[in-house]
């Protein structure tokens, strides 16, 4: 899984079966310093994430296990909000209420 920030939303009415009511959000992957770490991607949302939220994203087929219907062609799902994030490297720790 990796850290990310929700930066946008995608609307797609024509989609694979089993994905109705699943929200599609654009996520910018981040590293532990909250710096940009890789290309943006589109993930399904399993935790009602909103714009600007710091989240963690599950990749690959396992991403479907967080969705109402698991047999769907999905390779990324937001599986958690990040309130706190500690790391032993330099740079600020992320505490609750920090601006992600």
């Amino acid at each position: 899984m990796h850290l990310g920030k929700v930066i946008g939303r995608v609307v797609a009415t024509r989609r694979s079966a089993g994905l109705d009511e699943v929200r599609l959000l654009i996520v910018q992957p981040l590293d532990e310093q909250r710096a940009i770490a890789g290309d943006t991607l589109v993930a399904c949302d399993a935790v009602q994430a909103g714009l600007g939220d710091l989240v963690h994203v599950c990749d690959g087929r396992e991403a479907t296990l967080a969705l109402p219907v698991p047999f769907v062609p999905v390779d990324a799902t937001i599986v958690g909000h990040v309130e706190q994030f500690a790391h032993d490297g330099p740079g600020p720790q992320i505490g609750a209420g920090d601006e992600p």
Partner: peptide, 16 residues
């Protein structure tokens, strides 16, 4: 596999 046809998307509240 193509799994959706996009109608629209926005980034930070701006329609792209």
């Amino acid at each position: 596999a193509i799994m959706a046809v996009i109608d629209s998307w926005d980034v930070n509240g701006t329609l792209v």
